[in-house]
Design a protein around this nucleic acid. Structure first.
Lengths: 165, 165
DNA sequence: CCTTAACTTCACAAATTTCTGAAGGAAGCG
DNA sequence: CGCTTCCTTCAGAAATTTGTGAAGTTAAGG
């Protein structure tokens, strides 16, 4: 049993999970260090860690943590909190904030739509390629509307099944 | 006007679009060469190209095309077709097949769910981290069900607005 | 069968990405 | 105020990824 004093958790098992979950995120296209930081935050009881704690768990330099955290904050996967009366910062996953961010690939969707519109123009709306692209564009426009509705249904579903009352 | 003889299309404009759309796919996490091949196929009138044609348009070696196409076929983004009476192969995007594949991140979703279940076990279902992870897991399970329904609504919507009759 | 065309695989070179160490700056604390 | 702690930035080293050339495999066509 690898139980570090006082934590009440098997640090090695936690670390194994962190790394394996991070690996899944990497496979899905996420950069390695942000994935590891995110997985670590997701797995800690407090839901937030300091830069130093992250560096220690992941065995990386403060610089690496800094870079990863900047990316995660930009994409709203984590939020930064200043610890009052200290220059320490805590990085936090907000339980649900983060997977909302996942569906907030809205930005990506928007950029794709822009690119596709340009494509329809470049290729000519009346060419076979242009028509194929128009249909693709229509799909993304449809998808964008659906996503908002889907998230709303999720909140209802969650409140009924997980956080009732 | 850069119009290559007989194609009836501005080859340079097409190429520009191909590269810029591919760049968007890369930003979203797709490997470079598959993204370029896919964008090229999406932009050609026939909806399919041979390995040689792809190599010429993208200015890459047959080896690069081969690797990209293998990936795209595995992920069902394109299908391979043998040209009868020839050892040429044609690679095709199926109009709609491809964005169905996009939502068929089912495989990814499933792997995440597996990883999260392991996480709940490792961390303990009654710990704060375990509960947070349970909720995340519930979200993905919910999402999985929703995606199927969403695609069905898309087909209905498309048949009404784009391919009526 | 033998030739040749088309695709694939593999080892390696090149380019890109990723992380570190060191130096620099902001903010608490005495 | 100056010291100290913590975070960030930046140049460069290290590792990974990517694409090429060359050899190998399969199958058509004579």
């Amino acid at each position: 049993m690898t139980e570090s004093a006082g934590t009440g958790r098997d640090a090695e098992a936690v670390s194994r999970f962190v790394e394996s979950f991070a690996a899944q995120l990497v496979e899905a296209g996420m950069a390695r260090m942000p994935a590891r930081v995110f997985a670590a935050l997701l797995s800690c009881d407090a839901g937030s860690m300091t830069s130093a704690e992250l560096g220690e768990q992941l065995r990386v330099s403060p610089a690496a943590v800094s870079g990863a955290v900047r990316y995660l904050a930009q994409t709203h996967m984590v939020s930064r909190e200043r610890e009052p009366g200290s220059r320490r910062e805590r990085y936090r996953v907000h339980g649900d904030q983060w997977y909302e961010a996942l569906t907030n690939r809205d930005a990506v969707l928007k950029r794709w739509e822009t690119a596709l519109r340009e494509g329809v123009t470049s290729l000519g709306p009346d060419t076979p390629a242009g028509r194929r692209m128009s249909e693709t564009l229509a799909f993304f426009e449809f998808l964008e509307g659906e996503l908002a509705a889907l998230m709303e249904r999720w909140r209802v579903h969650r409140d009924k099944t997980i956080r009732p009352g």
